[in-house]
Simulated scan of single mutants.
Amino acid sequence: MLSPRLHSCLHETHAHYTALHHERTITAPHTAEVLQVPREQFAKIVMLKIDGALAMLVMPAKFNADLHRIALALGGAKVELAHEDEFRDAFPDCEPGAMPPFGHLYGMPVHVDSRLAAHDSVTFNAGTHTDAVRMPYMEFESIAQPEMLWVEHMM
Rank of each mutant, 00 (worst) to 15 (best):
V122T: 12
V112L: 07
P100M: 05
T130A: 12
A144G: 11
F91M: 05
A132S: 15
G97I: 03
I143Q: 02
T13G: 09
H83D: 11
V37S: 00
F140G: 09
L67W: 01
A61F: 04
N125K: 03
F42I: 01
S114C: 09
V122R: 04
Q145W: 00
S3E: 09
P96C: 02
A118K: 15
E139D: 14
E152K: 03
P146R: 10
T18L: 12
V122F: 05
H68L: 06
E139Y: 08
Y106I: 00
M154A: 13
D51Q: 02
H68V: 13
E152I: 04
P100T: 02
P109R: 14
K49C: 11
A65S: 12
I70M: 09
H11S: 14
A90D: 06
M59E: 07
E147Y: 07
L6G: 12
G97D: 03
H153I: 07
P29E: 05
M155L: 12
Y17W: 13
P109C: 04
H104Q: 13
P29H: 00
L67Q: 07
L48R: 07
S114R: 10
K62R: 14
A98I: 01
L48I: 05
Q145A: 13
S114M: 02
A98S: 15
L35F: 07
G75H: 07
V79N: 10
E84Q: 15
F42L: 02
D85Y: 13
R24N: 02
I26R: 05
A61Y: 06
L105D: 02
G107D: 08
E95I: 11
N125F: 15
Y137Q: 01
R115Q: 13
K78L: 07
K78H: 14
V112F: 02
P4L: 11
A55W: 08
N125A: 14
S114E: 15
A55H: 11
A117N: 08
V46R: 04
V112C: 08
V58Y: 00
A98C: 14
D51M: 06
T128M: 07
M138C: 10
H11G: 00
S8R: 15
E40G: 00
V34H: 01
P38M: 03
F124L: 11
A117Q: 12
Q36M: 10
T25R: 06
L2W: 10
A55P: 03
P92N: 05
A98R: 03
K62S: 15
E12M: 10
M56A: 12
L20N: 06
V112G: 06
A82L: 11
L48V: 08
Q41M: 11
D131S: 15
L67I: 09
H30Q: 10
A73M: 03
G103E: 05
